[in-house]
């Protein structure tokens, strides 16, 4: 039986960049015990000899001609921006203070 502790969920939430309340961490860890049990059934039939399928179409290296087409204007691209400055996206600080 697989299970996830509250700390496991907290670590996954950090990796997925989602802040979570204590209550949510605890309740999700309970739910995951049930969900993981249910989905772990895939291991019953997934033998060594079975090739995995990542995609329904057997496509490989789909190319198109390298032609320049009209693209979004700067104003259009910025139209949904939460914040902008001098025709650019303004984002919070990315690098540390030091």
């Amino acid at each position: 039986m697989s299970s996830l502790s509250r700390d496991d969920v907290a670590n996954l939430a950090r990796l997925a960049r989602i802040e979570m309340s204590e209550e949510e961490l605890v309740s999700l860890s309970h739910e995951f015990t049930v969900i993981l049990d249910a989905v772990a059934r895939v291991q019953e039939v997934a033998g060594q000899d079975v090739e995995p399928t990542s995609h329904p179409l057997p496509l490989r290296n789909v190319f198109r001609p390298d032609v320049v087409l009209p693209s979004l204007l700067t104003e259009e691209a910025l139209s949904g921006a939460p914040a902008q400055e001098e025709s650019r996206f303004r984002v919070p600080q990315i690098l540390g203070e030091e």
């Binding site: 996830l4 496991d8 996954l12 990796l15 995951f32 989905v39 772990a40 895939v42 291991q43 039939v45 997934a46 033998g47 079975v50 090739e51 995995p52 399928t53 990542s54």
Partner: peptide, 20 residues
């Protein structure tokens, strides 16, 4: 979780085989 290192084969990898 399903894609994380150490669990990938058991979960996502097995699911892809079921897809086949």
């Amino acid at each position: 979780y399903a894609l994380s290192s150490g669990y990938y084969d058991a979960y996502y990898g097995s699911a892809q085989k079921v897809r086949t």
